Amino acid sequence: MRLVPGQSSNDLFLECRSDAFHLEVRDTYAVPSESAEFRRFLDGEPETVDYAIRPWVQLMREVAARGVTVRRVRVVTVPHSDYQRWLLSITGSNVAAGEDIRYVQRNAAGAITPDDWWLFDDVRVAFNLVDQDGRPAGMAVTDDPGIAKYCRDVRDRLWQFATPYVDYIAGVHTRQ
């Protein structure tokens, strides 16, 4: 495995040719650039950021425009953590940029790794690294065929029954 610092991880998306898939398994993240807006959400204050112009959304728009399929499954605990509730409120920008984001409840996910990872073009896996406080700390990247196969199998299994964001969010609002 090779370590890729956080600022270099965009290169993995720029090198991707056909498909990028992300498995998210954490109920909360400690992303420094999100802390102020997350706090505003918790305090019931209005958003001050246009999520459609965040660097991540712009990168996803660029990647999707090149014809790369970007998919994501979020494995979530219900009831949702505060962080997941906040993500649900802003994910529409990601979807509008070209990401296909779907949800699976944790109790239905079966055996999965405790780590988030990206699978690029079915052959390269990048594990999201976090420090002891849960802050992003880069990625550990491998082209190991066995690890890639495992990730493809998990992706294919979860994708079959994952609920698309639009349907999931409609169900969340219906239950409230």
Rank of each mutant, 00 (worst) to 15 (best):
M1Y: 07
R2K: 13
L3Y: 15
V4A: 09
P5F: 10
Q7S: 12
S8P: 00
S8C: 08
N10G: 07
N10P: 01
D11C: 02
D11W: 08
D11K: 09
D11N: 06
L12H: 04
F13C: 02
F13A: 06
L14I: 09
C16V: 04
C16M: 11
S18L: 04
S18M: 07
D19T: 11
D19Q: 13
L23K: 00
V25F: 07
D27V: 03
T28N: 09
V31F: 14
P32C: 13
P32L: 14
A36L: 08
F41R: 03
F41L: 12
D43L: 14
P46T: 07
T48L: 13
V49K: 12
Y51C: 04
R54S: 12
V57S: 05
L59K: 07
M60P: 02
R61K: 15
R61Y: 08
A65H: 10
R66D: 12
T69A: 13
V70Q: 07
V73T: 05
R74K: 14
V75Y: 00
T77Y: 03
H80T: 02
S81G: 08
S81M: 11
L88H: 05
L88R: 02
S89G: 09
S89R: 05
T91W: 03
G92W: 14
N94G: 15
N94D: 08
V95I: 05
V95P: 03
G98H: 06
G98D: 05
D100W: 07
I101N: 03
R102L: 01
R102H: 14
Y103V: 00
V104M: 05
N107M: 10
G110T: 06
T113F: 01
D115K: 03
D116G: 02
W117A: 02
W117F: 15
W118H: 06
L119E: 00
L119H: 01
D121K: 08
D122P: 00
R124L: 15
R124Y: 05
V125W: 01
V125S: 04
A126E: 06
N128C: 12
V130G: 04
P136A: 11
G138W: 12
M139N: 08
D143T: 08
I147K: 01
A148S: 10
K149S: 09
C151S: 10
C151E: 01
R152V: 00
D153N: 13
R155N: 02
R157T: 10
R157H: 14
L158D: 01
W159V: 00
F161L: 00
T163E: 14
P164R: 11
Y165D: 06
Y165E: 05
D167A: 11
Y168L: 00
G171R: 15
G171L: 07
V172A: 09
T174S: 14
